[in-house]
Write a protein that binds this DNA or RNA. Structure first.
Lengths: 206, 206
DNA sequence: ATTCTTCTTGAACAATGTTCATTTTCATAC
DNA sequence: GTATGAAAATGAACATTGTTCAAGAAGAAT
């Protein structure tokens, strides 16, 4: 009951505040949009100084990127929770899960896709990888549905399909330029997936 | 050679500088991205004071929105220039024109879709309308290809299809999260359109 | 030439990201 | 328990950038 615990106690407190800061930032982004996120607001809400935010995340981008990282992670978790028993149902499930996530966390998803780095610093590799991995999740069910096609082809197809779904959803949810009436989005999205699959030679689900 | 001409000369000068300011802002956004656009830079580059920019556009958003407005306009012009003789070819032409515009003016298009208003001011109605009109341009050829479907249905279908194309392109061109290798994007996009049309029951083009 | 309107200017202000010298905290050693 | 040194926290000060506005300049009308 000495070194290790003392250290862990300190670390635990540090981690706890780090989590608090992230949670506050996420809540702010989620409710008021990325543009309204201010260092001072976060620091004040967390009951600490501005400098502490910088100690923890390096700079403001660091905080935003941390939130975005967790957003991709949450999204991925949700997408991976879609049952993989039936490939056709899985594809619909993936599209629907994305829609659900985008509906519930519109501003967080926007923060992920719209945030630009300060100056010309490179976009973090790990986030990039996570997003690409998420967008590749349609590959597995598509491969099962299209066993005769070239796997490399299917890999591209799946990312295209997911990108298309992303486009439909992100524009559809954009309250300012409502491309599709919200209440219809869900069923239209399913219809879109069906149509596209039909175009790929897959018969519709029963 | 008096009142009218004097007035018009003054107005002309004013319009000329307005155009200059817009051009400078557009060039800046186009080359360095929206985030790097600064009032002072624009004013200095145009050889006028900061205040003049405000006189002309009200605030910073005003300048950005003006550039964005012209971006939608240029996009629409380009899309409307696509030959409308053959509906199938037109659909491909629209997708390809959008890709071409997005490739040549990636940052301008991002500015249009990613810019958020200061505070919670509403998004300008006219830009919204122009974007929606642009996204409805697939409706006419689709109606010709699907004469038996409910027109309201086709209206939605066309906006979905355009949104899908938008998603594929905007993610595909995102150098940070390259979902699709750029050199393939063009042909893949055509393939996507074909596939989706096939799903809608339209036979591929010859 | 005078007056009146309009436009222009840029200093000053406000909001906000960032730095860093100072202070505080705290684990460790004795 | 106290001393010590490292690590963290602090917030005043700074830098950048959008915004305002009183004062001045320019131009049109008479």
């Amino acid at each position: 009951m000495n070194i290790v615990q003392e250290e862990s106690r300190r670390d635990q407190k540090k981690l706890q505040r780090r989590a608090l800061l992230i949670e506050i930032a996420r809540r702010s982004i989620s409710t008021k949009g990325l543009k309204s996120l201010k260092v001072r607001d976060v620091a004040e809400a967390a009951g600490c100084s501005i400098g502490s935010v910088y100690n923890e995340f390096g700079d403001f981008d660091g905080l935003i990127l941390t939130v975005n990282r967790e957003t991709v992670h949450a999204l991925t978790t949700r997408l991976k929770a879609v049952p993989a028993d039936d490939p056709l149902r899985q594809l619909h499930g993936l599209a629907d899960a994305y829609l659900g996530f985008a509906t519930e966390h519109a501003n967080l998803l926007r923060s992920l896709f719209e945030h630009r780095m300060e100056d010309d610093r490179p976009f973090p590799e790990d986030i990039l990888t996570m997003v690409m991995d998420a967008f590749a999740l349609m590959q597995t069910p598509l491969l099962r549905l299209l066993p005769d096609r070239d796997p490399g082809d299917v890999a591209l197809l799946s990312r295209m399909m997911f990108s298309a779904v992303h486009g439909i959803i992100s524009l559809g949810l954009e309250e300012r330029m409502v491309a599709v009436p919200p209440e219809m989005l869900r069923e239209r999205l399913a219809q879109f997936v069906d149509t596209h699959l039909a175009g790929l030679g897959v018969s519709r689900r029963t």
